[in-house]
Write a protein that binds this DNA or RNA. Sequence first.
DNA 1: TTGTAAGCGTTATCAG
DNA 2: CTGATAACGCTTACAA
Lengths: 325, 325
Amino acid sequence: MRHVAERARVSRMTVSRALNKPGTVNEGLRKRVLDAVAELGYVHNQLARNLSSQRSNVIGLVLPSLENSIFAQTLKGISDILRPIGFHLMVAESTDDPEDEEQVVAAFVAQRIAGIILHSTNHTPATVRMLRSSNTPVVENGDFPAEPIDMVVSYSNRAAAKAMTLHLARLGYRKIAFAGLAANPRADQRRLGYLDALRETGLATEPSRVVSVSRGFAGGTEAIACIANRLPDTDALFCAGDVLAAGALFECDRRRWRVPGRLAIASFDDLELMRHVRPAITSLRLARYEIGHRSAQMLLDRMEQASMPVTFVDLGFEIVQRAST
Amino acid sequence: MRHVAERARVSRMTVSRALNKPGTVNEGLRKRVLDAVAELGYVHNQLARNLSSQRSNVIGLVLPSLENSIFAQTLKGISDILRPIGFHLMVAESTDDPEDEEQVVAAFVAQRIAGIILHSTNHTPATVRMLRSSNTPVVENGDFPAEPIDMVVSYSNRAAAKAMTLHLARLGYRKIAFAGLAANPRADQRRLGYLDALRETGLATEPSRVVSVSRGFAGGTEAIACIANRLPDTDALFCAGDVLAAGALFECDRRRWRVPGRLAIASFDDLELMRHVRPAITSLRLARYEIGHRSAQMLLDRMEQASMPVTFVDLGFEIVQRAST
DNA sequence: TTGTAAGCGTTATCAG
DNA sequence: CTGATAACGCTTACAA
């Protein structure tokens, strides 16, 4: 920048102003500066900028898993907001482990990010303390936390799972099983919602049909195997994840079980795949893109005015009834 | 940091050293410093660190699309390398548009990233100039570029597509169609590979069976519709993408076409889905995770020693033969 | 081993 | 509207 200033025969301050607030600088000078910038191939140093101005143009995103495709839409929703205003996105993985998350958050705070989006809602006390004392705007995404750190943009896993289970009951299914990941906070909430619904419809007198499975398509295979062996009279299966549901459907196909004749299948999260398999799978549609979009927007709003007009958003869910139930 | 220094009654330099090179500072002092850090809840400022030391601990990743799940593994591969050494990842989207990519690269260079990974291999001259003159280590990923900017970790789209087409020919298919995205540089290369193979096997005398389709499962539907209408004697379809292939398979199912009896289907990119549909789809397996892993590693190697031991890596591909062909 | 001085490249602030 | 000066919070280089 010094070189640019010399070349344009102005002070460095004028260069800075010409670049940041073009309106506040005389047209002739501005042109000289811009020309010098072009000739020198000068690239503004954001690091110095951020350090000097005590603010940052990057926001952090902490996801349980980088490999899970359901986050792609959220990522896109965030990116679409940040891009036009010159902000950037740093991503990291927490494996849903609060200790890991703490490490990542510490690193992000050290990086002086302008804001952070957390998918997990389960944090160590140190994580919360760091975020609070550094005054970092925070949005939590994955569920409604019992004690929000700051802002929340989400839907209720429990309410959604309950609604879907009630939907299945309303369709006449009576022996509804639930398959979900073990030891996953969101799957746990969904399981609770499922049990809520059973209780409400009086189906709770049925024996428990909760099965814990592993991640991916294989989990669906396991769920069907479990039903075949231990719960053969099950008439509907509610999977706490779309890949799970697809895996279950494929396994039914292999076993020549008719869906929904032999077993109805419903899923959580409405990936495009759900709509294309045969039969298409009934699913819960969540506003994944919107979650990212709103989260980023709220982070920015908060930065501009330290006041807090909106801190809690429920984006809800929709039940998409298809041929599988 | 000044507060920490005061509290520990040492100079700021000693604090810096105690934090960065614990070995070079007396044990007693170090303990005093660490205690002070803990009591004050002090968080190192990476921005200032990076500015002062003229280096950075973040690397940039530019992907054609944030929503495409095939990048998830690459992302993970990169992250697994960066995390343990305290580096971070900034992601952005280029939509495969060199102009957009230029914007993103400019922003990343302004951010003084330590290195950059580009999926696209098609750049504007300005992009290349910026990267070169800023001396940023670069890895290109998506294909083998005609003129690499710097390092390359990839596989050959053209060679892979040719190999798969030859594989189909070897299995006895004679009227092989190709479906791919229009105006996508990687799809274009795959198309060329397909044509290479036809020429080599003498099948080139057949009429052209190249169809351009849209993105997603719908593209597969379109491909099948096109075959049904315009190329009914086609006996095999090679899809330049896994989601495309799955979409095609689902459409065959809907039309009650037997796969591979009526039409064989092969795909590019071996997502888990390919293995779980019925019939399982023959596919090209690429080392997506490894690409990320190696790319990140090479970036780091390059930073340590400005020499360049490895600059070009072909990670190759595998053909996974399954029931669909 | 520890401390001092001089930046790193920008912006905030205040004067002109 | 423009410029001088002092931060921003750290590290490099050198001195003690």
